[in-house]
Design a protein around this nucleic acid. Structure first.
Lengths: 195, 195
DNA sequence: GTCTATATTGCGATAGAC
DNA sequence: GTCTATCGCAATATAGAC
C-alpha cells in the first residue's frame, strides 16, 4: 500500500467496521472519517466489500503468523505459546477479535472467502497440541479433544471482547491484559492436566 | 402477545436478527419471512427497532430467570448451577448467545437500553461466587476475581458460538452440548481449586 | 387489523470533468 | 488521482383506503 489516500481509508475504516459491523457502516462515513472523497473507495478497493476484505485479510494474517512459530514445541509449551501470542495480538491489533467474533456471530462473505480456512487451521493446531499432550500422558485421557480446543479459545478471547463493557471494573493496561492471559492459560492447563 | 400476526413477526425475526445482525436485516425481509404485510411491523412494534428490542428483552430475561435460582448455594455449586443453566438456555433459546455476543461486539441501542444492566448483574453474580469460594478456602487465593469471572463466561459460551462453523467436526446433539458444559466447568473448577 | 401507495432518506457505485 | 454530480435502488416509515 503505497498511497496516502489508500492508507487513510484503510486506517479510518478499521475502527468503524470493528465497532459497528460491516452492514452498519456506510462508505460516506468512512470517507468522511478518512477525510478523502467517497469515490476513492471504489478507486482503490473496488467498493466497500473490497475495503472490508482487505482489512479482514490483514488482521487474520497477523494471527496466523504469530501462531505458526509454535510448531515443534512440546504440547504444553505449544498451548502457552498460543495463549501468549493471542494476548500479544490483542495489544498489537486491538480490533482483530471484533472482526473474528463479528464474522463468527454474523457472517458476511468474508467468512467463507477469507476467514474459514484460517480458523480451521487454528482449530487443527489446538486439536493436535491437546491430542499430543494426551498421548504423552500430561493431559487427562478422558478429554473430548474438540471440546477442549474450543474451551481454550473461549477462555483466552472473551475477556478481550468484554473489556470495553467492563472497563469501569477492570485495569485496562497492557500489563493487565498479559496478566489475564497468564492466569487464564494457567486455569486451563491445570484443569486438563493429568493428576 | 395475543395476536397471530404479531407472533409470526416475532418468530420470523429471531433467526434473521440472530444470524445477520440488526443492521443487515430489512423489515421487508422480516415481513416476507413472516408472511405478513410490512406495515404491521410499525403497527405492532413501532418499527424495526421496537421489534428488535422486544426480542432482545425476551431472550435476556430467560437467562436472568435461570441464574437467579442459584442464589444461596455454596460457591462451587453456584458456579456449576450457572454452567448448567447456560447450557440449558442454549438448547431452549438457541439464538440467545448470538444476540448477546452481537451486542457485545457491535453494540446497538439495545446494549445501553436493555442488555447492560443484565450483563452487569451476571458479572456481579459470578464475582461474588468466586470471591465466596476464595474466602471459604476452596478456590486459590491468588486469583484475580474479575479475570476469573470473565474466564468462566468465555469457556462456557464460545463453544455455542463456534458450533455452526465446526459442525462437521462436532456432534451437534443436545447431549453433546450438555457434555461440553460439563467438561468445561470441570476444567475451570479444577483450574481455580486450591490445592 | 390489513393493505396499497407513497414520501423521504440514505445507500453503493460510477461517469466524466479537471 | 481527485472531484462533483447523479443514477438507480433499497431502506424505514406512514397516510389513508378498505
Amino acid at each position: 500500500m503505497d498511497n496516502a489516500t489508500q492508507e487513510k481509508l484503510f486506517a479510518a475504516a478499521i475502527p468503524l467496521f470493528a465497532e459497528k459491523g460491516y452492514a452498519a457502516v456506510s462508505i460516506r462515513e468512512i470517507a468522511k472519517a478518512a477525510d478523502v472523497n467517497v469515490s476513492s473507495i471504489s478507486y482503490y478497493f473496488r467498493g466497500k466489500e473490497g475495503l472490508y476484505h482487505a482489512i479482514i485479510e490483514s488482521h487474520i494474517g497477523a494471527i496466523s503468523k504469530a501462531i505458526s512459530s509454535a510448531e515443534g514445541l512440546p504440547p504444553e509449551e505449544r498451548l502457552r505459546h498460543y495463549a501468549k501470542a493471542i494476548s500479544e495480538i490483542h495489544t498489537k491489533k486491538p480490533y482483530v477479535i471484533r472482526f473474528v467474533q463479528s464474522e463468527l456471530v454474523n457472517p458476511t462473505s468474508a467468512m467463507d472467502k477469507i476467514l474459514k480456512k484460517h480458523l480451521f487451521s487454528f482449530y487443527r493446531f489446538l486439536n493436535k497440541a491437546i491430542q499430543d499432550g494426551i498421548d504423552s500422558g500430561i493431559f487427562r485421557d478422558d478429554l473430548d479433544v474438540h471440546h477442549a480446543a474450543l474451551s481454550l479459545v473461549g477462555i483466552m478471547n472473551f475477556y478481550f471482547i468484554a473489556k470495553p463493557l467492563f472497563r469501569d471494573f477492570l485495569d485496562t493496561s497492557v500489563e493487565a491484559d498479559a496478566a489475564y492471559a497468564e492466569q487464564a492459560v494457567n486455569i486451563y492447563l491445570e484443569g486438563i492436566r493429568r493428576k
